[in-house]
Design a protein around this nucleic acid. Sequence first.
RNA 1: GCGCGCUUAGCUCAGUUGGUAGAGCAACCCGUUUACACCGGGUAGGUCGCAGGUUCGAGUCCUGCAGCGCGCACCA
Length: 714
Amino acid sequence: MVPEKFLKAYNPASTEGRIYKKWEESGFFNPDALPGKRPKPFTIIMPPPNVTGVLHMGHALMLTIEDVLIRFKRMRGFKALWLPGTDHAAIATQARVEKNLSKEEKKSRFDLGREEFLRRVEAFAAQSHDSIVNQVRAMGASCDWSREAYTLDERRHHAVYTVFKMMYDDGLIYRGNRIVNWDPKGGTTISDDEIVYEERAAKFVTFKYSKEFPIPVATTRLETKVGDTAVAVHPDDARYKKYIGKEYDLVFCEVPLHVRVVGDSAVDPSFGTGAVGVTPAHSQTDAEIALRHDLPSIQVIDERARMIPEGLLRGKKVLEAREMIYEWLKKEELLLGEEEIKQSVATAERTGSVIEPLPKLQWWIGVDRPIKARGGKTLKELMRAPVEEGTIEILPDHFKKVYYHWIDNLRDWCISRQIWYGHRIPVWYRGEEIYCAAEAPKGGGWEQDSDTLDTWFSSGLWTFSTLGWPEKTKDLELYHPTDVLETGYDILFFWVARMILMSEYTLGEIPFRAVYLHGMVRDGKGQKMSKSIGNILDPIHVAEEFGADAARMALVVGNTPGTDFRISNDKIRSYKLFSNKLWNIARFLLEQADGLKLEAPLSEKDAEYLSQFKALAEDITLDIDAFRLHLASEKLYQYLWSVFASDILEESKPVLKGEDPTLRTSRQAMLFRIFSDSLKLLHPFMPFVSEEIWESMPEGIKTEKLLMVEPWPI
RNA sequence: GCGCGCUUAGCUCAGUUGGUAGAGCAACCCGUUUACACCGGGUAGGUCGCAGGUUCGAGUCCUGCAGCGCGCACCA
């Protein structure tokens, strides 16, 4: 009666691969193949992992939460679609390949040329993709592989070009020469959101340009001062008022400067000397002052972060130039003072390089431009409205405020990148002519823009590009808007906001109804997991050692949305023990299954046990519906171990061995009914062990081929 | 500077709408005639950061304060 496998302890390693194969072969990951009518769809589009390497715990958390929701809804009778994919992660992937190239072959991408380099990146991406997809499977993710998408494949390419052209024609995408965030190491511009601010010590130096120049200024970036074209003071500042409008010709560290004194109310008279040396080419705020006063802009730092002006400084690195000018000021007795201050320095997220603000001709998306097709609303307004109106729910709720705060401070989005891996900008040039389309216009001589698009541009389309847009597909009609977008709070701006922007602009509808933001996964000591600390828990190793089920439970129990949380081997081990506990409960019950009649009348006590369980099942159902997975999973654990196994089973032993056959059949029925329904409740959280036990449940309990498609007990 | 969050047992954290403080791990004691030692039974441990307020009643709501963390902005 008891299958032999139950005589040994539960072994996830030898079970999980086999079970996953069974699921995959059933075809039930594809909602079209699910049994029953299923009028209502339920959709989650998977946040695509970058094809830059391996899955980490954050991915494992994402996969677990989404799989719990999808399995739950599938059992609840929904047409449940979970669409998987991967992200080409333009800069990140290119940087990886460039690093390998320089390490292994001592070559740069320019040595290989665009075509050959792209071939290398694609080979790397393909390899990385395969290993990632296998890791996703190992976590038990029940996603529909037949619909798998890539942010850089043909269909997504089509979607990207279509949206670009729409925005170009609507005047939202424009080309502008402005100050950009230049990453000298990556050799590309980056968006404001890709900047990481680092606190560093800096020397705040007060000086005069020359003996004759009447106004002292202060700066931490002496090297930019050779690009100054004005000094700005507050228009009401009694000290400097008299100089406003005067112009000076002077030579600063061998560089001739023409400096005008302007009055501008953006200047804070109480900060520094109350006067600003205006460098329009290398500072955002200075460029704004320059615009107001029609000042010239002189670029003095190049794309490799080296000095441009002729003379002493030419070709020197920025930091060297800073030091040289400092020494020069000292020598010329122009140095008036210095102070050590703390300063937050802009660095590039991917390369860690210090950002050089430079003037460059780039492509931008205007976030404050009225859109005719959307009733004159701006992109900012389109992003804000659905969250304000509550058509998009954000969990936890307080992230709404963070979201609004970000929108309020948002500036135009720089979308062009000087890298090669990505969607190439669909714009063609011939002399002064510009043409926006996927293909070059007829007639020769057209050259395509050499830049590619910010990776988040294609990610922004993800909810509908994956469903086939711009074609009018059935999938799009049925599954969009999607139901839940589940991701880490760290990409609320990068991604969530841009999906709302793109969906509202392109389709005029929300991309998803709810946003579930999970926290960051940290190690047992609360440290961020990183390679250099060596505290990374690889979800795949964890799954091999303890089982994916154990990893999933450890990731879900007690983990509330929006809050960082810690995971350790100890925690995961405790849920491996739980898998084994379930295994042994099953073994015990199967030993007692002789003469089982599921519909036998229940004694008063057994009816009481059953109704207690029903109440719990209802409670757990409400919890999952309200995204309280941390509570649902803990309640199940608690009930099965402390109530069902420790109390009910122990109390049942004498009844099952006893003389009274009525009590015995009643008890049997109650135990099997509770346990089999428990397996259903548990399935979303621990799909492997529940499915494996389910396989051995007696006839009469199973109504479908697999537990994964059994109807939910409530 | 603007904003957001956290502070509950030794550690990590739950605590859904206000109704007698919870779990896991760790600790200590006992138990090996069996569903499970990947186990069972038991013990100990908290004035819920501080100060006020609302309430019949506050870990939960309000105000203020402190410590910690995070985001955004500024950074001449």
